[in-house]
């Protein structure tokens, strides 16, 4: 083999780059997201499978309807009225952003712009 030093160095760098996730995960602790389950209600606006993959589409549509088209009518979830709202709707059952939203968003590197305008509802002082 000619230029052994150079070729082997190059190959070592290549293998190190390709296996980056392996040694990166080795030196860092992993954290699987664990969501805080709601206690208030058992029923969400849509089924879990849909909410897991597509809640952002739902929220985006609500935002457009409410803010841009003035369609503020409450929607009906199995007989109960439900506001098309993040703070007044979703966060009634899932009050803690850190224990619910951020768990998966941090895990999957999603940076939603919800919080550019919204703030978390504070827990009632008692």
């Amino acid at each position: 083999m000619y230029d052994k030093g150079k070729v082997l160095t190059g190959l070592a760098i290549f293998v190190a780059i390709v296996t980056f996730p392996v040694w990166y995960d080795l030196v860092h602790a992993q954290h699987v997201p664990k969501l805080e389950k709601p206690t208030l209600s058992k029923k969400c606006v849509a089924d879990i499978a849909y909410m897991r993959t597509s809640h952002m589409v739902l929220l985006d549509n609500w935002r457009n309807e409410v803010v841009r088209e003035e369609k503020r009518k409450l929607i009906d979830v199995e007989g109960k009225p439900y506001a098309k709202s993040l703070q007044m709707g979703c966060m009634k059952c899932h009050p803690d952003r850190k224990k619910f939203c951020d768990e998966c968003h941090t895990y999957a590197s999603v940076d939603p712009f919800c919080w550019d305008c919204h703030f978390q509802p504070k827990k009632e002082a008692n």
């Binding site: 996730p21 392996v22 990166y24 995960d25 080795l26 992993q30 699987v32 997201p33 499978a49 897991r52 993959t53 597509s54 589409v57 998966c104 895990y107 999957a108 999603v110």
Partner: peptide, 17 residues
């Protein structure tokens, strides 16, 4: 179709570890 990213990441991290 919007896949379930959290489940997919669990598999991918599992493969890496």
């Amino acid at each position: 179709t919007r896949a379930d990213v959290v489940n997919i990441k669990q598999l991918a991290v599992g493969l890496a570890t």
